[in-house]
Amino acid sequence: MSDFLASGELAVLDRHGLSDFDRLWALQLDAVDEPNTGRGGWSSVYRLELEGKGYYLKRQSNYLTRTLHRPLGEPTFAREFRNISRYQALSIPALQAVYYGERRIRGERRAILMTRALDDWSDLESLLEKWPQLSASKRQGILQVCGRTARKLHRAGQVHCCFYPKHIFLRERRDGWQARLIDLEKTRPLLFGMRDRLKDLEPLLRRAQAWSEGDVRVLLAAYLKQPADSALVDNWLERLTRRRCNKEAR
């Protein structure tokens, strides 16, 4: 795979001498959290700011995932970058890739994935912490955009597989709420119809404990393009509730 560099970010990176793999790898930064270890290597995340723009720079070494298609393994960032590109091609709102590259150096497999930070967005998890304090119109807008985003994702034939509040970023604009999805590494094609769709939605509802049944109905109404009191919303709510109860009983 050749290196990817977003055309809109080239000038900024060039001005700071950061438009190639070696310089991005050598850049001295403080990690935002403890590195992930395992898989025979390590993976770490760093933050940097350039000319008032925020970025996340992720670097990994010998941190591989193996599949039937790639039995010898590949950097986990490779799959994440492919999914970011797929979301963009399918018009599914998600984080933006700035740079991706891989290198093999003396038996070591290195990878870099750089993305724009969503600094003017809020993750749904933080919004849920203050859910009762939000106005009714804000709550309605958030629920509807989450439902519409899930609908767009599934209609495009994809399941996120980590559709959690911390992976849904939101912001309010004059014309309504907008959403973007992050952590796309586990995304896969939607293969099993309703089963896959329920499996994707249930973890979100299980983690959004601040939501009432009425809230969930608003989300499902947007997802299904049906009235909140429709028989179809009733059916989906029943199925999701049953799945949630089975999960919590384990």
Rank of each mutant, 00 (worst) to 15 (best):
P93H: 09
Y164M: 09
Y164F: 15
C162A: 13
E74I: 01
L48D: 01
T76A: 01
P165S: 13
P93V: 06
T67E: 00
R116Y: 03
E125H: 13
L72E: 03
E51S: 06
H154I: 09
E125P: 04
R109I: 14
Q96A: 14
G147N: 10
R148C: 08
R79N: 01
S126A: 14
F163A: 12
Q96G: 05
G101M: 05
P71V: 02
S85N: 07
V145I: 15
L64Y: 01
G157V: 08
E125A: 15
S126L: 13
R79W: 00
H69L: 01
L153V: 09
P132E: 05
R155K: 11
R104G: 04
L127W: 11
T65C: 01
R70Q: 01
L113R: 10
I84L: 15
W131R: 10
I112M: 12
A136Y: 10
K58C: 04
T115F: 08
D123K: 10
I112D: 10
S122M: 12
Q133T: 14
F77Q: 04
R82G: 03
A97V: 07
R148S: 13
E51L: 04
L57Y: 03
Q60L: 03
F163T: 11
R116L: 14
K130L: 12
F77T: 04
Y46D: 05
G54M: 03
K58L: 05
R66T: 00
S137R: 13
S85A: 13
K58G: 06
G107W: 08
A136E: 14
G101A: 15
A150Y: 11
Y100K: 05
R66G: 00
R139S: 12
R116D: 02
A136C: 08
V98K: 02
Y100A: 09
Y87R: 09
L128I: 11
T67D: 00
S122A: 14
E125V: 08
G141T: 12
T65M: 03
H69C: 01
D123R: 10
Q133D: 13
R110M: 15
V159W: 06
E51Y: 01
V159S: 12
G73Q: 00
Y164P: 12
A150V: 07
C162F: 10
Q96D: 13
E74P: 01
G147W: 06
I105L: 15
R109E: 11
L95W: 04
P132Y: 07
K166A: 09
F163K: 06
I105Y: 04
K166C: 09
T115S: 13
E49K: 02
R82S: 07
R155F: 05
Y87T: 08
D119S: 08
Y56Q: 04
Y164E: 10
R70W: 00
E129F: 11
G157Q: 05
Q144R: 15
I105S: 04
L134F: 13
E129D: 14
A156W: 05
